[in-house]
Structures are given as C-alpha cells and as structure tokens.
C-alpha cells in the first residue's frame, strides 16, 4: 500500500524537493501544505500516515499545529516528525515527549529523511 505523508512547511521550495526526492526513492505519496492552518485541514481530510511538521512558520506555528492535531481524535494518532532549522530546538522538541515521534534538523539528506520516516512508520504501526 502506498503511504501518504503530509509535509507542513512554509518553505515552498523545500517542500517541492522533499516531494520530488522522496517519491523518487520510495513508495510514499507526498502531500504539501505551506501554512499551518492548511496543514490541519488536510490532515483531518486526508488522514496521512505521517506528518512532517516545521516548527517556525508564519501564522499558526508548528507547535500550535501539533497541539491542535493531538487534541483532535481524527488526527491524534498520526505520528509526527518535527522539522526545524535550529539545532537549539532539540531540547524543546524533546520536551514534547510522546507528542512527537522524532525530529529532523535542516538541512537533511534525502536518505536520512527516508530512513527516519521508515523507522517511525514501522514503530507506530
């Protein structure tokens, strides 16, 4: 079965390459949302198997999105990998505990990204 991955990140070009690169080496189907609000909507409608969620976004930020997703029964069980451009977010992310399944610090190599997604998917299934 083809797994659906939602990426929520305001950097459009980043999303574009993540989609192109991941789809080229895996069976994942990547859906893109470049705003937090949009991300929540799509998550509820599409029920992706995993969400890649950027922390720092204009409008509703990643942590807010996370809270909303985990607070809604339709989306609360979807595993989440946080994306960040700041190494120092590491400790903040760790503080999220079970709310988030893993994290990735940009820039990230395609193979590393795929590996993390695969790992989280196989654990949470």
């Amino acid at each position: 079965m083809m797994e659906k991955i939602l990426i929520v990140d305001d950097e459009e070009d980043f999303c574009y390459f993540v989609k192109k690169n991941l789809e080229a080496i895996s069976n994942y189907k990547i859906i893109i949302a470049t705003r937090g609000r949009k991300g929540i909507q799509i998550a509820r409608k599409e029920k992706p198997d995993l969400i890649l969620l950027d922390i720092m976004m204009p409008g509703i930020g990643g942590l807010e999105v996370l809270k909303k997703l985990k607070g809604n029964e339709k989306t609360q069980n979807i595993p989440i990998i946080m994306l960040t451009a700041k190494d120092e977010d590491k400790s903040r992310i760790k503080a999220l505990g079970s709310f988030c399944d893993d994290y990735i610090i940009k820039p990230v190599e395609n193979l590393v990204l795929k590996g993390k997604i695969h790992k989280v998917l196989s654990i949470t299934k």
Partner: peptide
C-alpha cells in the same frame, strides 16, 4: 541560523 539553514535545506534538496 534559521534564515541560513532553511535555504541550505533547499540547496541540499535541489
């Protein structure tokens, strides 16, 4: 850092 690492992410992806 945030402003630099984001474009780096895109350069690497590209």
């Amino acid at each position: 850092a945030h402003e630099i690492k984001n474009p780096l992410g895109i350069i690497l992806g590209g």
